[in-house]
Amino acid sequence: MFSGLVAGTGEITKIIKQGKTIELMVRPQITNFLADVKYGDSIAVNGTCLTVVSVIDNQFSTKLMPQTFEKTIFRNLETGSLVNLERSLKVGNRLEGHIVTGHVDGVSQVIERKVNENAIELKFSLSQRLVGQIIAQGSIAINGVSLTVMDTSSRWFTVGLIPHTQLITNLDMLTVGDEVNLETDILGKYVVANLSGGRK
């Protein structure tokens, strides 16, 4: 479980594909990020909850199932790509973002980018499957970053990046056509499921 308050970014230093198993090696660009990380810990990488399998020389490795690799933007990443990183929540800490599970719902694409004074406003495509789970002023996780939805329609939604978010995440580098991992608000999922009688 995560909050969407990303600690910073990390660099993918190695991608190893062996049969249907994909192993990633990531070097955090965050001081002491791996100080007490151990085998079996969960880390959100671009909003995807992954399990640490080793920690070596200020890097950690993790293995992805083929489904995770294909369902997320990991299929587009390469050595040198920057990813957002967040450690799992500790009970008793403040929850200043929103509840993020690290289970990506799908991939969305940037369809518009504009700068409004010191903020970057991004418009993303919205699949019909997720309509109803995203509302204006609601929460959404993009590449693991907890953001507030500015506006939405049946085909798109918009968010704004404040300077702090631009500084510590990889979202400021997004341009039109880029893809991101998307996770809608878990509370919204349950509301939609209940109203639809459990139908998807």
Rank of each mutant, 00 (worst) to 15 (best):
Tyr190Val: 05
Ile12Ala: 12
Pro66Ile: 12
Leu147Asp: 02
Gly97Ser: 06
Thr62Trp: 10
Gly102Cys: 05
Met25Ala: 15
Leu95Lys: 04
Thr79Gly: 08
Ile73Glu: 00
Leu5Pro: 08
Ser61Phe: 05
Arg94Ala: 13
Glu86Arg: 05
Lys114Arg: 13
Thr158Ala: 11
Ile134Gly: 07
Val159Glu: 03
Pro66Ala: 08
Gly10His: 06
Gly92Pro: 08
Met25Glu: 15
Arg113Asn: 03
Thr148Leu: 02
Ser196Thr: 15
Val159Arg: 04
Ser139Asn: 14
Ala141His: 00
Glu117Gly: 00
Val91Glu: 06
Ile99Gln: 05
Ser81Asn: 05
Lys17Val: 14
Pro66Cys: 04
Ile142Gln: 04
Thr184Phe: 04
Thr31Pro: 07
Lys14Tyr: 07
Ser125Pro: 00
Cys49Leu: 06
Trp156Ile: 02
Ile56Ser: 12
Asn170Trp: 10
Leu5Met: 15
Thr21Glu: 14
Asn118Phe: 01
Pro66Glu: 09
Asn118Ser: 13
Leu195Phe: 11
Ala7Leu: 05
Gly4Asn: 10
Arg87Gln: 14
Asp57Ser: 13
Val45Gly: 01
Asn118Ala: 09
Val110Lys: 01
Glu121Pro: 00
Glu11Tyr: 01
Gln29Ser: 12
Leu195Thr: 03
Gly19Lys: 12
Val53Lys: 11
Ser42Thr: 08
Gln67Asp: 14
Ser42Asn: 11
Gly138Lys: 07
Asp172Tyr: 12
Asp57Met: 09
His103Val: 04
Thr152Ala: 12
Met25Gln: 15
Gly10Tyr: 06
Gly19Met: 10
Gly97Pro: 04
Ile43His: 09
Gly80Lys: 05
Val192Cys: 04
Met173Asp: 13
Asn32Trp: 09
Arg94Phe: 09
Asp178Phe: 08
Ile43Asp: 10
Leu24Thr: 06
Ser108Thr: 13
Val107Tyr: 02
Ile30Asn: 10
Gln109Gly: 00
Glu117His: 09
Leu161Glu: 03
Leu147Cys: 08
Thr101Val: 00
Val104Trp: 02
Ile162Met: 14
Lys38Leu: 09
Val6Gly: 03
Ser54Ala: 15
Ile99Glu: 01
Val115Trp: 00
Asn76Met: 12
Lys90Leu: 11
Phe74Val: 03
